[in-house]
């Protein structure tokens, strides 16, 4: 198996807000499934792991020099990807509850679209209405497929005012749970659900090779690129690095 780049063109750019854009690609990565990522390369700039939001779609959050450069790309421009990589969300043996926060919403849109019939409930949590990526898609998906959709915004500009953890729903082991978002949100939501063996969460760490060799993305010894990025919360909750430590570009282990 090789790790050659697929050079493809950007078919369409969806600007969600100041910090989030989705790039629809000419090429579809048909083998990609939700929760997996690609290494996205801008020649002469850098290469970063980005989650798929569909088989022909990646959603990028502007956070540093690489993503800033990506935001300058226009429709018709070339973009280079290798992958798909990693383990995504597990096959469905029970209906799912889905919890998304921040740009973690993007891979979950892919997850829900692929598994419409087996999604029971979707919770989204954002600071404000403009931060809710794919809001229209979620509303349509929920209506068509009889999915319960609950949205929390911290400023109350859409849905319920509050945090995603403010739900008073009781969670049962008749369901599986998928969470994607900032690590602190993952922890808060997973603790609230409290069914770790049926909860799957996506973890992010700085990545170099993305093929399991360099060890840079180690998360308490699990290499996120090949062992993850999606893990069972039953594993994650016991790991000392969870919510606590990450490695920098030099390899140094520091507090998050």
């Amino acid at each position: 198996m090789d790790d050659k780049y697929k050079c493809t063109k950007i078919k369409e750019i969806i600007t969600h807000n100041e910090f989030n854009k989705t790039f629809v690609l000419d090429h579809s990565f048909d083998e990609a499934y939700p929760g997996q990522f690609a290494m996205v390369w801008l020649p002469g700039i850098d290469e970063k792991p980005i989650s798929f939001s569909a088989q022909n779609e990646i959603t990028i959050k502007k956070i540093g020099p690489f993503t800033k450069k990506a935001f300058e790309l226009k429709e018709g421009d070339k973009i280079w990807l290798r992958g798909p990589y990693g383990k995504g969300y597990k096959a469905l043996d029970k209906p799912y509850y889905v919890f998304g926060g921040g740009c973690g919403i993007a891979p979950l849109k892919f997850f829900i679209k692929k598994n419409k019939a087996t999604i029971k409930t979707v919770y989204l949590g954002c600071r404000s209405k403009t931060d809710i990526l794919f809001l229209d898609d979620f509303i349509k998906l929920a209506e068509k497929n009889n999915i319960e959709l609950t949205i929390f915004t911290e400023d109350g500009s859409f849905g319920k005012k509050g945090m995603i953890t403010d739900t008073d729903e009781e969670f049962s082991d008749k369901y599986n749970y998928a969470i994607c978002g900032p690590e602190m949100m993952i922890k808060a939501v997973a603790e609230k659900i409290n069914i770790p063996k049926q909860t799957y969460v996506s973890i992010e760490r700085y990545m170099k090779c993305a093929v399991g060799l360099c060890g840079e993305c180690s998360f308490s010894g699990y290499r996120v690129c090949v062992d993850g990025p999606v893990f069972s919360y039953d594993i994650v909750k016991k790991l000392p690095h969870f919510g606590s430590k990450r490695r920098t570009k030099t390899g140094e282990l520091i507090d998050m």
Binding site: K4, K208, E216, K249, T250, E252
Partner: peptide, 25 residues
């Protein structure tokens, strides 16, 4: 030192190339 930015590896299926350049903490 941080070593090189990415891409740090390339695998064409026959041979792998790497240029991490000794990231060191």
């Amino acid at each position: 030192k941080q070593g090189n930015p990415n891409p740090t590896i390339y695998n064409d299926g026959n041979v792998m190339l790497n240029a991490f350049a000794l990231p060191t903490h």
